[in-house]
Design a protein around this nucleic acid. Structure first.
Lengths: 340, 340
DNA sequence: AACATTGACTGAACCGGATAAGTTAGGACC
DNA sequence: GGTCCTAACTTATCCGGTTCAGTCAATGTT
């Protein structure tokens, strides 16, 4: 089966290629009657303009890029990225933009792919995930002048557009909630330490604990995997004065932590309260269901995609604050034991 | 910053565009000395050939497509797709192929996207997931002559290449394992009924149960979500003669089922055994850890991608059998109670 | 020494769109 | 009735690669 080209449409309509191009792109230069005739013929023979030809003659590639630099293991189990992607897709497919996805090993590989994509003109812009403290990708994207939206921030995003969520506020809300329940020894199992939002949460945790006069704000770093979450939990619960509540930086680690607590004979929530960050359906599947900090991740992705499309169309860089995660109390939190 | 083109390389090397093209693509027509000089210059100025220009002049787009037609909800929580994608990526990025991803609502939308991609020459081939009984996508892809690899089968894949795994054998192994433990009333919570592999498993389940002389092989259909898994489990466990073992078609439903059993006061595995299909890290996170049917999903994706690249290069269609899922017994299975 | 062959390249056509520049017909205007 | 203008096109060029058909010098062949 031969793919129809603009010349096929032109021939059947008895006009030139140029006229067809004007008609299909809503440009002036053809009468309304001719435009309708051309559109009808194009639809009839199932014509879609070659993205390559289009991209080559100066128009956009109608594609955006997204690179994930995480090991396959954590990618699979964390619902975050898939939810983000479905939100991004919702925005893109409405405008028939394509999403080009790549999974790489590290930041250097990611930067190399950005450079290659730029040279290949493969994408019109990119979404940047997992913003790091002192992120080396930002200056590269600025130098290439590749339209980009950083998912995260609000600091460290240079002159790029960013969409961020106030993690510090969400963390403060959580600690205050646990404080109100009576908890005085609260610990935290954090995510990868060089991610900016981890640093933000760690700082906020330290500050709010100090403000409330709580014991030292222990944060154990980890890598978001269940294994690390379990290990961190074991360490915390084995210490001489163990915490009465633990806040986890994702739901996978929280579930692992719950499992460890049960294994060690600690009842949840009567002897230990657990809060998960990222409220995926997983939190409702376990027993007791987990109190979690959640927000609409697909919407987050959709907003980021929308701003990227605007940046591609030439909009100036903006810093957009998205919804703050809110706490949904469930069965994993309660008052601490009187004298633990 | 201006993107370097082949003309820039040619000028600096003092040769024609054609010579540069031959040199970069490993074609004969330039001396080894000149080839090295050209390669050095291309690397120095960071030249990547425009994918659009390349695709336009007859070569491939160096991109493959993958469409997911599942609601955002199940996409996020099921590790399967993300693991598959990382495997696909591993194969693609080694050859610097791009992956174009799209999430759509249903099969019709998926077919429309295939037609559009084909017309746009946006992808050189596609990976087809979630093969259905009587799948309408297969004839369309055959008609378009768009290289494709079906992930699933082995039947119903027409003249397309397919990579499949023997689900029937895995299911039989599982039932025989439970039978050996002493179980005589085994039920199953199946996935979406119109997916081919669900039908395959259901048929195999019926056959093996009949062969072993077990009670009626009850399969409750569901949609892979935790909610449905919980509902199906409640129904099964509330029946007058309840099963002593349940096989779930994915791990998310198995975890939900475990939760329901615990909620109903049934001890796992002493009163109820649970087996999950898809052995993601989730299975090890819950308590007790789940006995699960697992296989290497990234490798599955990598194999599919490799065969797609071969199909793009003109290889004839083949039917490839991948590894069969194997059972990893953990804490969720054991002998049934004597007289339940 | 005349001629064929080969290697190393150049020049130009081509892919399929977008778009600037040119062409023509028809109507408005004085 | 000539001029000007505009709508509705057509023509030609360009984007940046690939590739085929030449060109030309060096080498081999008898």
């Amino acid at each position: 089966m031969k793919r129809p080209t603009i010349a096929d449409v032109a021939r059947r309509a008895g006009v030139s290629k140029g006229a067809v191009s004007y008609a299909l792109n809503g440009q002036p230069g053809v009468s309304e009657a001719t435009r309708q005739r051309i559109l009808a013929i194009a639809a009839e023979i199932g014509f879609s303009p070659s993205s390559a030809a289009r991209a080559l003659s100066g128009a956009t590639a109608r594609a955006i890029g997204l690179i994930l630099a995480r090991p396959a293991q954590t990618l699979g189990i964390e619902p975050f990225f898939m939810e983000l992607i479905s939100g991004v897709e919702a925005e893109l497919s409405a405008r028939s933009y394509a999403l080009t996805l790549q999974v790489v090993a590290d930041q250097d590989a990611e930067i190399a792919v950005y450079r290659r994509w730029w040279g290949e003109r493969r994408v019109d812009g990119v979404l940047v995930c997992d913003l790091r403290t002192d992120d080396r990708r930002v200056p590269v994207l600025e130098e290439l002048r590749l339209p980009a939206v950083v998912i995260g921030g609000p600091s460290g995003t240079g002159r790029l557009t960013s969409v961020w969520s106030d993690d510090a506020a969400a963390l403060v809300e959580t600690v205050e909630y646990l404080y109100a329940l009576g908890h005085r020894r609260i610990a935290r199992v954090g995510g990868l330490p060089d991610l900016l939002h981890t640093a933000t949460r760690t700082r906020a945790f330290g500050e709010v604990c100090q403000r409330l006069g709580l014991a030292e704000a222990t944060t154990v770093s980890s890598d978001y995997t269940g294994e690390e979450g379990a290990r961190a939990t074991r360490r915390l619960l084995s210490s001489r004065v163990r915490p009465t509540a633990v806040i986890y930086d994702n739901d996978v680690m929280a579930i692992a932590g719950l499992s460890v607590a049960q294994e060690m004979g600690l009842a949840v929530p009567t002897e230990l309260s657990i809060v998960a960050w990222d409220d995926s359906p997983l939190c409702r599947l376990v027993h007791p269901p987990l109190t979690a900090l959640g927000r609409d991740i697909p919407a987050y992705g959709a907003h980021a995609a929308r701003h990227l499309l605007q940046a591609i169309e030439g909009a100036a860089a903006v810093v957009v604050e998205d919804e703050t995660a809110h706490l949904t109390p469930r069965g994993s939190t309660g008052p601490p034991p009187f004298r633990p």
